[in-house]
Write a protein that binds this DNA or RNA. Structure first.
Length: 968
RNA sequence: GCCGCCAUGGCGGAAUUGGUAGACGCGCUGGAUUCAAAAUCCAGUUCCUUCGGGAGUGUGGGUUCGAUUCCCACUGGCGGUACCA
């Protein structure tokens, strides 16, 4: 038997496939363990070495649990709906289902190459009608429910209708878009359309006109988490706020439960913090201010009701309809000018400039506690979406209000004396109240309570909790997604498509382009018009399918239900969920929402979908950039050229084919950088240096079409390279470099297939685990993989002689050998539980080194290590298991447990420290008493040397640990 | 700004409830083997040193017999978020 990793990979991957080694049955007497990876979006560029980090970690756990006697569910599938496939279709004319099928097959192949133990029979694909039938069904159920805030759960719409018919809105305590006041009588008298519109105020999936993130370039609306810095996360296109008619999910109804549930799950602190921030709970009071000369009131939300005596003006969001009503004729022009200014400003402007702007409406509000008359302004810094869209401004205790007051010359009344708290900032809730009537002298927390009570007693407001989280916009005007299962009937009332008629599949189309806000589905006229009415043409966002996929794996082929009760009662929830931190907020939060909704419907037995979550660290790669400069020629002409990053501005240059002159760097941005391929990494003075060599460029230009085309594009931007010569006289450009996420566009992605082909899957798996803690970000570097390969080779050589024949003896193991074995068993067992895979690998290395040194080839020692290494190196382990005569697959063999009696030491080597500094070590019997150890240490001549001429103040002996002499 | 995470040799990283800092691997140095190279094996490798020893885990302080570990302040890096009242 030769150590031929490629042959081993092929042999055993075929074996596992043929024998369905990783098939999982649902009914069994074993305890269950569910290990899940976040399923990928199958993009055209395939997996890079960053993806498998998590897959390998979860695979190790899955395999270990399987051996330890659990029934393990370890599935993989594809999040196949989404924008890129559709963009690709628009660019190339290839139907998204075709490109998706190709990419999916490639991903699966790559995963099989890595030796991952997925049960592919349970695979799901969100774009498969058999799958999205149930996505549509679940969202349909959301549509058919409302949220009862008293019972704190979702209830069927039919029950809401009963309530409304009997008591009207006064009998309803519900999560709602806006408070309504409708009597039972009015409700009973409503027509179908009117009723439907009313119910939309309560449905958990509802359609409403609201300000949404509109992305013109993508032709669709986007959710808040798909927008970064006023631009679309995908494609980096500008995004604007537009009022549009859209479907949303009422996630705000679940805000409190989503927050509370975080205490019951094992997620990292950072991830919990992100979710908490996203939900953004704040406790305060809703306060009603009268408006002078108007019947209506101005409601504001504040977390600092204690500072109400410091209110010197009010601010409302420019978008509110109230603005028009309040504006006095004298201020009309000023307000209109300001509104026009706000309308001109994009999201990006608003974020980047952060200017103090606003305008006075001419109206005044009356402070309910001291009857003070305060002016009402409008200003951009007050957001229409948060709270009531209006604030009471307290310039003494709010940074933004202060800046505004200073700019507009408004009074500032100090109401909180912070002199007892030096260093406290304006927003800290610390200090003693002054100039505040009955609150004077109170500390802030006490004053908040007192002010809130007074406001409530006077009937001028009430306690309120506000959440930053917004309802989730769940419409996309795109083709490649699940159609909303809704048909508008003759009265224009949205009707849910009955379960028997699901799935609503996409019509065949050739052109997927979205035209100014209209879904491409609008053009599929045959599809839209049904006997029962007109179909909804919005599709669902990509999160729709991934919200619940972990449930489908439990029962993937069930034609009658999204998951059977039997399956979900057995598998319950995900024990370990592994995936990238980039999904920390959106995906996790939304699937928790759907899970809680399904819990309310009694469809799942658990309150949380994921018990434990592990975010693997990102593997970055060096991105090399070539710098674009300008050659200012002697004749005054300016020629763009590529220059080295080490060439300073003003350097004289003589570039063949361009001319002589000086280097000028691009005025606008200093230097323009372009990521580049064909980079050579060299070492100069012990520092690594990234260079683009002229010979590499020339070779690329002469090689295949793609590479040549690449440099044609590069040379279109600047016609020449300003080469420098290295020590050997070869022309090159020095490149600047930064670590970044692996990406095809940055030319820093490394393909795992290449590594597997060279070193074998086992070596690749162990190397990725050996890089460091799985949750830490790290740069990819291939240096060091040889060390892991050498280790695997040495491990193999414990079993196999130089003649490539199995060479294992039946001799009895020595005490020393048993100790090596059981130390290893203990360490690896513990470290897998801690998800500390890197230290497992070193433990294997240590044990292999020791067994090699001991010349141990005994079956009694080696055989258990095969079962132990199986989760890490499944191919090599399978081969050795078979060679040793093991029956069946090693992956179904028992997990070897450490036995403590082999770990007991006869003696312990004590570190002997003086004043805490270790100076020497001494051996004492393992059972030696404190006194024996101290006496023994004092008797030692070396110790006496250290104690010579000093007085011993104290001796600390911790048996089995250390000895410390405190001397003076 | 705010929230979270991180900081240890030339590099990736290890170190149990505070108890021998630098495991394991890379790289480097020397040696064996070889006609030679690759591969493999062996030894050494935190820094300074007058070879006695001394210093040392981002910086400064604290608690302790003893701190990489706990506490306080700061610096730097990564990720998230941002006019959230």
């Amino acid at each position: 038997m030769k150590f031929d990793v490629q042959a081993l990979d092929r042999k055993w991957q075929r074996y596992w496939k043929e024998h369905k080694t990783y098939r999982t049955a649902t009914t069994t007497g074993k305890p269950k363990y569910y290990v899940l990876d976040m399923f990928p979006y199958p993009s055209g560029s395939g997996l890079h070495v960053g993806h498998p980090l998590g897959y390998i970690g979860s695979d190790i756990v899955a395999r270990q649990k399987r051996q330890a006697g659990y029934n393990v569910l370890h599935p993989m599938g594809f999040d196949a709906f989404g924008l890129p496939a559709e963009q690709y279709a628009i660019d190339t004319g290839v139907h998204p289902s075709e490109s998706t099928a190709v990419n999916t097959a490639r991903y699966r192949e790559q995963m099989e190459t890595l030796g991952l133990s997925f049960d592919w029979d349970r695979s799901v694909n969100t774009s498969d009608p058999d799958y999205f039938k149930w996505t549509q069904w679940i969202i349909g159920q959301v549509f058919e429910h409302w949220y009862d805030t008293e019972q704190d759960r979702a209830r069927p719409i039919a029950e809401l209708i009963d309530l409304l018919e009997q008591e009207g809105t006064s009998g309803v305590r519900a999560a709602e878009t806006e408070p309504l006041d409708v009597t039972a009588e009015d409700f009973r008298g409503m027509g179908p359309k009117e009723r439907s519109d009313l119910l939309m105020n309560y449905r958990l999936a509802f359609r409403s006109v609201s300000y949404v993130n509109w992305c013109e370039a993508l032709g669709t609306v986007l959710a808040n988490d798909e927008v970064k810095d006023g631009r679309s996360e995908r494609g980096n296109h500008p995004v604007e706020q537009r009022p549009m008619l859209q479907w949303s999910l009422r996630i705000t109804a679940y805000a409190e439960r989503l927050l509370a549930g975080l205490d019951t799950v094992d997620y990292s602190e950072g991830l919990k913090a992100q979710q908490v921030n996203w939900i953004g709970k704040s406790t305060g009071a809703l306060v009603h201010f009268d408006i002078e000369g108007h019947d209506r009131q101005l409601d504001v939300f504040t977390t600092r009701p204690d500072t109400i005596f410091g209110t010197t003006f009010m601010v409302i969001a420019p978008e509110l309809e109230l603005v028009d009503e309040l504006t006095t004729p004298a201020q009309r022009q000023e307000i209109d000018d300001y509104l026009a200014y706000v309308g001109r400003r994009s999201e990006v402007d608003r974020m980047s400039e952060n200017k103090v702007t606003g305008a006075f409406t001419g109206a005044y509000a009356i402070n309910p506690l001291n009857e003070a008359r305060v002016p009402i302004y409008i200003a951009e810094y007050v957001l229409k979406d948060y709270g009531t869209g209006a604030i009471m401004a307290v310039p003494s205790d709010d940074e933004r209000d202060k800046r505004f007051a200073q700019k507009f010359g408004i009074d500032i009344i100090e109401v909180v004396d912070k002199t007892d708290y030096p260093g406290a900032s304006l927003k800290d809730k610390l200090g003693k109240l002054i100039n505040s009537g009955f609150l004077d002298g109170m500390e802030v927390p006490e004053a908040i309570e007192a002010a809130t009570q007074r406001i409530e007693t006077l009937g001028r407001g009430e306690r309120q909790i506000n959440y930053r989280i917004r309802d989730l916009v769940f419409s996309r005007q795109r083709y490649w997604g699940e159609p909303w299962p809704i048909v508008y009937d003759a009265d224009d009332v949205p009707q849910l498509v009955p379960t028997e008629e699901l799935p609503v599949t996409l019509p065949e189309m050739d052109d997927f382009r979205a035209v100014s806000g209209a879904s491409p589905l609008e053009r599929a006229t045959d599809w839209i018009n049904t006997p029962s009415g007109r179909r909804e043409t919005d599709t669902m966002p990509a999160t729709a399918g991934s919200n619940w996929y972990y449930l489908r794996y439990m029962d993937p082929h069930n034609p009658g239900e999204f998951v059977s009760k039997e399956a979900v009662d057995y598998w319950r929830d995900v024990d370990l969920y592994v995936g990238g931190a980039e999904h920390a907020v959106s995906h996790i939060l939304y699937s928790r929402l759907i899970h809680k909704f399904l819990f309310d419907l009694d469809k799942v037995p658990t309150r949380e979908p994921y018990k434990k979550l592990l975010n693997q660290g990102m593997i970055g790669g060096p991105i090399s950039y070539v710098h674009l400069g300008v050659l200012l020629a002697d004749d005054g002409q300016r020629h763009p050229i590529w220059v080295g990053s080490d060439v300073a501005e003003g350097t004289p240059l003589d570039v063949p084919g361009v001319g002589k002159g000086y280097l000028v760097l691009d005025e606008s941005s200093g230097t323009r950088l372009t990521p580049i391929r064909f980079v050579t990494e060299t070492s100069v003075n012990n520092e690594s240096s990234f260079r683009l060599y002229k010979h590499a460029v020339e070779e690329a230009q002469q090689s295949d079409q793609q590479d040549a085309a690449y440099f044609r594009t590069i040379l279109q931007q600047a016609g020449a390279f300003a080469w420098t010569l290295d020590k050997e006289g070869r022309p090159y450009l020095e490149l600047s470099v930064e670590q970044g996420k692996m990406s095809k566009r940055k030319y820093n992605a490394v393909n795992p297939d290449d590594i597997c082909a060279r070193y074998g899957a086992d070596c690749f798996r162990m190397y990725e685990m050996f890089l460091g803690p799985i949750d830490q970000a790290k740069p990819w570097s291939v240096s060091g993989i040889d060390g892991v390969y050498r280790f695997l080779r040495r491990y193999w050589n414990l079993f196999v002689g130089n003649d490539d024949q199995l060479n294992v003896s039946e001799g009895e193991a020595t005490k020393e050998e048993l100790k090596v074995l059981h130390t290893l068993l203990k360490k690896v067992g513990e470290d897998i539980d801690k998800l500390s895979f890197n230290t497992c690998i070193s433990a294997f290395m240590v044990a292999t080194n020791e067994l090699t040194k001991l010349g141990c080839n005994k079956r009694a020692i080696l055989e258990p290590t095969v079962r132990l290494i199986a989760p890490f190196a499944p191919h090599v382990a399978e081969e050795l298991h078979a060679a040793l005569g093991g029956s069946g697959s090693v992956h179904h063999a028992n997990w070897p447990e450490a036995v403590d009696k082999y770990l007991v030491e006869d003696s312990f080597t004590y570190p002997i420290a003086f004043n805490g500094k270790t100076r020497l070590t001494l051996d004492f019997p393992a059972g030696a008493s404190r006194e024996d150890v101290e006496a023994g240490a004092r008797a030692d001549t070396q110790v006496q040397g250290y104690l010579d001429g000093k007085s011993v103040r104290k001796v600390i002996v911790v048996p089995g640990r250390m000895v410390n002499f405190v001397v003076a």
